[in-house]
């Protein structure tokens, strides 16, 4: 089956199993084309999420390490 791409950057990619009916997967096979570029917005979302998780994690650790004598030993 010949696939006429629509742009120079089109790359042929084997289809993956998807949340489709069997027939849908059959129909899609051999014609799945994915355009490959990274997304700036998506990258930003990832960076922000990871930064927040790290930041909140460290804050929780900081709270749990709180001791009156400031020795920094974990409690209990």
């Amino acid at each position: 089956m010949r696939v006429v791409g629509t742009d120079r950057k089109l790359v042929l990619k084997p289809p993956k199993k998807r949340l489709l009916t069997k027939r849908g997967i059959e129909l899609m096979s051999n014609t799945e084309i994915i355009f490959q570029t990274p997304g700036v917005g998506g990258a930003l979302a990832c960076v922000v999420i990871v930064a927040l998780v790290v930041c909140y994690g460290f804050t929780l650790r900081w709270i749990s390490r709180g001791r009156e004598d400031q020795t920094g030993e974990p409690p209990r």
Binding site: I63, G66, R67, E68, P75
Partner: peptide
């Protein structure tokens, strides 16, 4: 999170 209620933690 290892809370023991000491004033510094609080």
């Amino acid at each position: 999170f290892g809370w023991d209620g000491n004033p510094e933690q609080k």
